[in-house]
Amino acid sequence: MPKLQKKVLFCMAGILSFACALGIAGALGKQLWIKGTILCKTGAMLVNATGEELQKFIGEIQYGLFYGERVKQCGLGGRPTSFSFFPDLLNVIPASIHVSIIIFSTMFIVFALAGTGFFMFNAFGNPYEALHGPVGLYLWSFVSCSCGCLILILFSSEVKMHSLSEKIANYKEGAFTFKTHTEHFQTSYWIILFCTAVHVFNVFLIRFAGFHFPFSKSKELDTTTGAIDLMY
């Protein structure tokens, strides 16, 4: 492939990687990860609410990785409150999983920025083989993609398997019991998914630029090359 086309592809991949870093940083601090509704089970059972009457006992909840808001409905109007995960909810939620999500999100930003630097260096510099060249591009793209996958898996597990919304809704509630009615992932979650897919796309851009996947090259060595070989 001509050198100019390689530069264009690497610049495109670098810009995408940088955009992902910005998107993840923005998503990390927002409370747009989960939005749903919570049912006041105790109140609904006391009056045997059904149909439209049941709507009086359905509140709302929305949260991210650091804070959120909830509106509790127990038949007498909504009770809006805000909450913070640190330090209030650490004894209620699976703290190890939640902290791991934040750590991997931070690492995702760092690796995306590192990938941006490597792509631009390969586009405008004189990269060497090994980690400065295509192997480095594959490495950072793979590590970034892995971080994104771990974030999605851990957060989905925390929400669905550990009933995160119910634990938040029932925090410091002695008289009423709340149950998750509906919940769905919001913008920040889909940004992480999109950024993960972008790094997978970057892998194919590297391959399209003419560089084979690591460990897929022939074992035959070129005896005419020196100790340090330039990529191009």
Rank of each mutant, 00 (worst) to 15 (best):
V143F: 06
E53P: 05
T223K: 13
F215R: 07
G133L: 01
G136R: 02
N126K: 14
H199F: 14
Y138N: 04
N202F: 07
S216Y: 02
P214M: 10
K219V: 09
G210I: 09
S96N: 11
V8D: 10
L131I: 05
K217N: 10
L16K: 00
F104Q: 01
D88L: 12
A112Y: 00
A49T: 10
L193T: 10
S157F: 13
A209F: 01
V47C: 10
I61V: 12
Y189I: 01
M45P: 00
C145R: 12
C195E: 04
Y138K: 03
G14F: 01
F176Q: 08
S144W: 00
S218Q: 06
K41L: 09
E52Y: 11
L164R: 07
F18C: 06
W140I: 14
S156K: 00
E69L: 03
S84H: 05
L193Q: 13
P94G: 09
I58L: 08
Y232Q: 08
L28G: 02
T180K: 12
A19M: 08
A123I: 03
M12S: 13
I24K: 02
F204C: 14
F142W: 09
R79Y: 11
I93P: 05
S17M: 00
P80D: 06
T42P: 00
G136F: 02
K179Q: 14
